[in-house]
Design a protein around this nucleic acid. Structure first.
Lengths: 337, 337
DNA sequence: GTGAAAGCGCTAACAG
DNA sequence: CTGTTAGCGCTTTCAC
């Protein structure tokens, strides 16, 4: 009971005609079209994309790989990707690939090799040349978010410049004893995000002629991580910095909670700046640099689907689109006392 | 260039034999099997599940619908579902369906009707009889998480009992002026979670002979939501409760932050209890009732895949598995002063 | 054990 | 504009 055959029979036309009427491809008279559509509606027909994909090569489905789900930045990206894809008629299938995932190879060699996807979006996962090549061999477009991937179009902020900007904000307020709390170089994220943010910090400090030795403290990229780091960093009042640049809003919030617990006044005794634009930032009146994950997701989808529609075929060339970030000043930063 | 045909040719066998050797179904001599496997490896063959599904009816893919991605409970569930499914060779495709989503009908009538999934998992989404019937008509198993769905197996905690337990904990410490901060009845979640937690609170208070009028304050199910509610609730020292039961850890944390900001000592002047087991709970030394989302996810997957494997066919009967919760006492609660 | 043939549900050519 | 035919890549009878 090939479903489309049922529709065709009911409408009194050939399978091919029913297919044309329902898919909108090819010529069908208005009359026939409505007859077919009525028949389809009557028996509740929904085309099987799997069968169609066998002949068209299109699956109406996109694969997404992402290293975290619960971190704010990534869950925002995910929500936005899903929403855009759904609106355009695509399914989104998700692969959660933490940085040192044992599953990684299997995901690339098996799951992504099954020709199930019209395209792949890699969020915060730095792909090896071999991985990119393998995806390209299937002739499918690949778009990245978060950092440069040779051979693929990528949407990303400039991590170094953003970190520099954050540090410069504190410098411009008059701070000289500034620390950076961020991810450990020993547990580097993809695209060397930890290092890049540290580099931006170091560059800005150096440009201001300030020392940075002992200027960095490692922390998990979470609120509890920032909290732990804060307790350690602020415990001794005689060796406490006047300002901290946190590599993410989550860390920054943890730092603020720790500071409050220690009775440190913000921003009078301590200025804190973060990166992201997390909803918590407003509640803590946190000065932060927003990086608009939802915009990044939208741009990625637009790029991917454009590559699919373009007559030139999937865009295989590498190109990075830098997304602008913007500093939002709130009352967690001020001039030092 | 039918891929499996290439493998067959290279191995010097028929397509059918290659298929049997690779899928493990049917008789193949050990010798032939290894020859075929070697050939497949040599040309990097990966079977197309879409083509296979056309004949087997199995897609090796599961659809998941979920109303939130960024809330801790849901992102934990999601991570765990993805992990379990991947381990068993299934793809997970995700539909984000907020409570009053305009897309809902389209997801059921179009996306889920396309015969793309071997089964569906509904996380925190209360399905109508029509929606359940539609899924069943496709002969696919359906498993729910979060609340009873007639006609489907569901994994869920007992929300009323859990809320009662939380309230009884505060009562047992000697509190009498207890409030409940939770979701508004006007913006009810699916499965009436807001109402159920309020009911549990009310029941426990009534059993203790205590009044509950004005005992409830509405809040968004987030840290900022709890913070706003806390500022309002604790602002007036003469009308401040001695204890609060928050409907989630996120709300509870917001309440604690607000209390600290107002200079209120916890637990001396205010006891707070939450529900979930969020990582923030430890950092805030929050007494909470854990509901182990990862266990719930694992149970759901086991149930779904068992239904697929069972010779009796997909389990269509409704049955609810209650998941135990456990109270973890930390220093955010104590006897009233 | 293995091969040949049929067919899953659909769309793309090509006639008409 | 519409019907007929072929075939996407795979699995599964059913012979051998």
């Amino acid at each position: 009971m090939s479903a489309i055959a049922d529709v065709a029979r009911l409408a009194g036309v050939a399978k091919a005609t029913a297919s044309r009427a329902l898919s909108g491809r090819g010529y069908v008279s208005e009359e026939t079209r409505s007859k077919v559509i009525a028949a389809a509606a009557q028996i509740g027909y929904v085309a099987s994309p799997n069968a169609a994909s066998l002949v068209t090569g299109r699956t109406q489905s996109v694969g997404v790989i992402i290293p975290f789900i619960s971190r704010w930045f990534f869950s925002e990206i995910l929500e936005s990707l899903e929403h855009s894809l759904l609106a355009r008629g695509y399914d989104m299938t998700l692969y959660n690939l933490p940085t040192h995932s044992a599953e990684r190879e299997r995901v690339f060699d098996f799951f992504l090799a099954r020709k199930r996807f019209d395209g792949v979006i890699s969020v915060g996962v730095e792909l090896s040349d071999a991985e990119v090549a393998q995806l390209h061999r299937m002739g499918r477009p690949l778009v990245g978010i978060g950092g440069e991937i040779p051979g693929a179009h990528t949407i990303a902020i400039d991590d170094v410049a953003t970190a520099r900007l954050a540090t410069e904000h504190l410098l411009s307020l008059g701070h000289t004893d500034i620390r950076h709390v961020g991810g450990s170089q020993l547990e580097e994220m993809d695209f060397a995000v930890h290092s890049k943010r540290l580099t931006g910090f170091t560059e800005a400090m150096a440009a201001a002629g300030l020392p940075t030795h002992d200027g960095f403290a490692a922390s998990a990229f979470t609120v509890p991580g920032g909290y732990e780091a804060g307790l350690a960093l602020f415990g001794d009042p005689y060796r406490r910095p006047t300002a901290v640049f946190a590599a993410s809003d989550e860390i920054a919030v943890g730092l603020i909670i720790a500071a409050r617990e220690l009775g440190i006044l913000i921003p009078t005794e301590l200025s804190v700046i973060g990166i992201d634009g997390h909803p918590y930032a407003e509640m803590f009146r946190l000065t932060t640099i927003e990086q608009h994950p939802r915009n990044q997701a939208t741009m990625a989808i637009d790029s991917l689907l454009a590559a699919l529609d373009s007559p030139a075929g999937p865009a295989l060339t590498g190109h990075i689109t830098r997304v602008p970030t913007n500093l939002v000043m709130r009352s967690s930063t001020s001039a030092p006392r």
